[in-house]
Amino acid sequence: MTDAHLVARAQKGDVPAFEELVRKYQRDVYGLACRMVLDAEEARDLAQQAFLQAFIYIRDFRQQAQFRTWLFRIAINQCYNFLKNRKKFGEPMDSQDMHLVADDSPEHGLLEEENRRRLQTAFQKLSEKQRAVVTLKVEQGLNYEEISQVLGGSAGAARVNYCQALKTLRKHLKPEDNHDVALRAYPAMAARVSRR
């Protein structure tokens, strides 16, 4: 059944039809929230909240845009509100870092974990809008026009944000070799430390 049919049924208060939509998009919305807030537990709550808001306001959805982009817009707004509150009131006590390794791929091991940690650190350096643009473009496959529908603003602004985000990520994903630099700067001390 297409999104349009499911949405039409959900607009009449059909919960199973809406749950069909939830099952279809729950991974996308959760992934988006994870990238935005970088906290798995909060991402779960935010995804649920986004679906709940979508259900409450689904009668206002006129099917002029895709249901998916409309849902992403709701999810992004939830994330913005959460981040705003976190800035205002500080980190919650029970915040939980993202699962850095997928549960079904333990064989990837330490290198995979390290890469994901680097990616998470690099994402922390991005602004909220840049995080959203990169996630929507690279992971959800939206074009600039669709991104502008989700985030507001123009397609050109989305393009600029994407470009800036890639530059920032490139800067922070470069391998770290600061330790070598530190040792080279103080050769005598390095020698003393190594003798001990």
């Binding site: 991974r27 649920q48 549960d103 994901r116 990616l119 992971e139």
Partner: peptide, 26 residues
């Protein structure tokens, strides 16, 4: 690098629990 490291999605029990909780709210 970004494409090689997507968000690690949780397993099926997580989604079952997710769906149950959301169902009650809906």
């Amino acid at each position: 690098f970004l494409k090689a490291h997507p968000v690690a999605l949780p397993t099926e029990p997580f989604w079952a629990e997710f769906g149950r909780e959301l169902h009650l709210k809906l």
